[in-house]
Design a protein around this nucleic acid. Structure first.
Lengths: 173, 173
DNA sequence: GGCTCCATGTAAGGAGTTACATGATTCA
DNA sequence: TGAATCATGTAACTCCTTACATGGAGCC
């Protein structure tokens, strides 16, 4: 089960039954999960998981669009519980960070560009924090989503602080 | 250019010329970038980038294995510089975090399991921090890589601290 | 009647994974 | 000479992306 599959299944467990369209809208709306869930991924995904007996679909009667309300089956619910409670080592690992990746190669830049680049990185990080704050100020967001946002924010703050150290490092060198 | 492509190209700029095999070994060795660079990804990638004129290969004379020393071309170097100095908004965004994803669905678990699960998440996070520390203690690691590790560590610490808050939240609820 | 949103899906293509496959070089 | 390492690569598969495609439902 991929992360996206697990995420969709968990969403169906928590907020379902809902249509594939609603699932997509939820991923689009929420800044808490980075998942996009484009049509080209979501419909095949649902087909796969239906075939595996993890999702059950009930067609809406009298709707010619073929609207189907999706729900996790018993087996699907068990899968989600297992996904949640298992804590394999890899989920603890440091996440991939495009900025951290780039920092390792800053030495390739002429000295004059390094500082400017680091400042740029700090700027986009601060912008991301600000965007989160705007989003969090929305009173329509429930406690759990707020908690998730606080987690994202804390990690961004850690990066911002670290970037100051990076700047220091390249100033000294 | 994907992140992996840019990363390989930047590595060739910084540490090249080197063979595809050495590139793979470097990705395997370093805990700083999460990239795996399996054979099935690295060789096609090099073929692609050679075709685009970003990588040049010089065969080693008298080596029947077909050993080829790879280097970034001038065009490749320019690409890397652009990749480094551009700071598109998305690189500032919060990274995907499998633990943060899961936390949003903890409510699906019976109360008795929630606390245990959060503790498990904290444990694997602490384990990742400890593994980084062991790695960092190695004197063979240069200053830049240490800096990158510090960044990863700081973000893991932020997650660990946040998980305490998560535990609190579910204790109160 | 027409606009917006709801709702489904496919097609082509990209990039990555694991597993398989082959053989040279080096060193004890 | 045999084992570990160096070194290259392909094949089948999975999942994701973007773009395309279709049409019903609801509302003014």
């Amino acid at each position: 089960m991929t992360e996206l599959e697990a995420c969709v299944l968990a969403l169906l467990c928590r907020d379902g039954p809902m249509t594939a369209y609603q699932v997509r809208k939820e991923f689009e709306r929420s800044r808490a999960s980075t998942w996009r869930a484009s049509t080209g991924s979501i419909y095949p995904l649902i087909k796969r998981m239906s075939a595996r007996g993890l999702i059950a679909a009930k067609p809406e009667r009298g709707d010619a669009r073929g609207t189907r309300h999706l729900a996790a089956t018993k087996a699907g619910q068990r899968k989600v519980e297992a996904w949640l409670t298992e804590t394999p080592a890899w989920i603890g690992d440091a996440t991939e960070d495009p900025i951290r990746t780039r920092v390792q190669f800053l030495i390739l830049l002429p000295v004059s560009l390094r500082r400017r680049t680091i400042v740029g990185m700090a700027k986009v990080t601060e912008a991301a924090i600000a965007a989160l704050d705007v989003y969090m100020a929305d009173s329509n967001i429930d406690a759990i989503e707020k908690l998730a946002h606080e987690g994202a924010r804390a990690m961004l703050e850690a990066r911002a602080t670290w970037l100051e150290k990076v700047l220091q490092h390249f100033n000294d060198a």
